[in-house]
């Protein structure tokens, strides 16, 4: 059986020469892990995710997705295996209708129209967006846009899903729906978020980043309950745990 995994060795990267945002990162993950990527603003969480899908290739070290190295020649394979949900849904959704946006990836991968339809319907069914099929993207609420964004990635049937701040701008109900949805997925997931309660609810493993490095990598329950560790790295205990302390 094909192994679904991510292997990162000694990864360093900077947008400007000599100014590394990420430094000497090594990281391994495999299906069906669900991993929370946490850290204060600007520690390089989003950059790390973008490197995994090859949006920047001028990194040092190595990144392998399912044993395929991330480099220019392998990008089509990498991107077919990895789905990326953007922080801002308006950047993710660029077609006019919900259906066309969800069908965009399968069509681009040259699938027959019948399979495109099947995949699109299935992604809509999984995310509960079937009733939005013909809606114009601009008419969707923030929560609906987020669900559609996830559906656009699910229609690719990726083995790995990367999500950048998925709970941002969601109301409590939509947030709860999203948690349920993510917990139902069997793919390897990496979720970058400031919302530590969200990570607590969706991820079994957490990676804490600070100043471009991985500070700590372990079970979510251990890391997110360690007040000293979190505060030292610019974070706070999840709100649900703070309430319990009160």
């Amino acid at each position: 059986m094909k192994q679904v995994r991510i292997d990162v060795e000694n990864l360093s990267f900077g947008y400007e020469k000599g100014q590394d945002i990420l430094s000497q990162i090594s990281f391994h993950a495999e299906k069906p892990e669900s991993i929370g990527l946490v850290g204060a603003n600007g520690v390089g969480k989003s950059t790390f995710l973008k490197l995994l899908v090859g949006l920047f290739l001028s990194f040092r070290g190595s990144i392998r997705i399912n044993d395929i190295p991330v480099e220019k020649s392998t990008l089509p394979q990498i991107r077919a295996a990895v789905g990326y949900v953007f922080q801002d849904s308006d950047s993710q959704l660029f077609m006019n209708t919900v259906y066309d946006d969800i069908a965009f990836a399968p069509r681009n991968y040259g699938l027959p129209e019948k399979e495109v339809q099947e995949r699109t319907k299935e992604a809509m069914s999984l995310t509960g967006t079937g009733s939005l099929e013909k809606r114009q993207i601009y008419k969707l609420s923030g929560g609906e846009k987020k669900l559609v964004s996830i559906a656009t990635v699910l229609s690719m049937m990726p083995e790995i899903i990367l999500m950048d701040e998925p709970s941002i701008a969601l109301d409590p109900r939509n947030r709860r729906n999203l948690i349920g949805l993510l917990n139902s997925f069997g793919q390897l997931k990496i979720i970058a978020s400031h919302d530590l309660d969200f990570i607590l609810d969706t991820c079994g493993r957490t990676v804490l980043m600070a100043e471009g490095k991985i500070i700590c990598d372990g079970p979510t329950k251990d890391i997110l309950t360690d007040r000293g560790l979190l505060e030292k790295n610019g974070l706070e205990l999840p709100l649900s745990l703070q309430k319990r302390e009160l």
Binding site: K50, V53, L55, P76, R79, A80, V82, G83, Y84, F86, D88, D90, S91, Q92, F94, M95, D100, F104, A105, R107, N108, Y109, E113, V116, T152, V153, M156
Partner: peptide, 24 residues
């Protein structure tokens, strides 16, 4: 910035410059 993000989103979903809307 927005244009870059949109383009990245298209690339990540297999866009290769071909016009593929309304295939039907």
């Amino acid at each position: 910035d927005r244009a870059e993000a949109v383009y990245e989103s298209m690339l990540l979903r297999g866009y290769n410059g071909a016009y593929l809307y309304l295939k039907e």
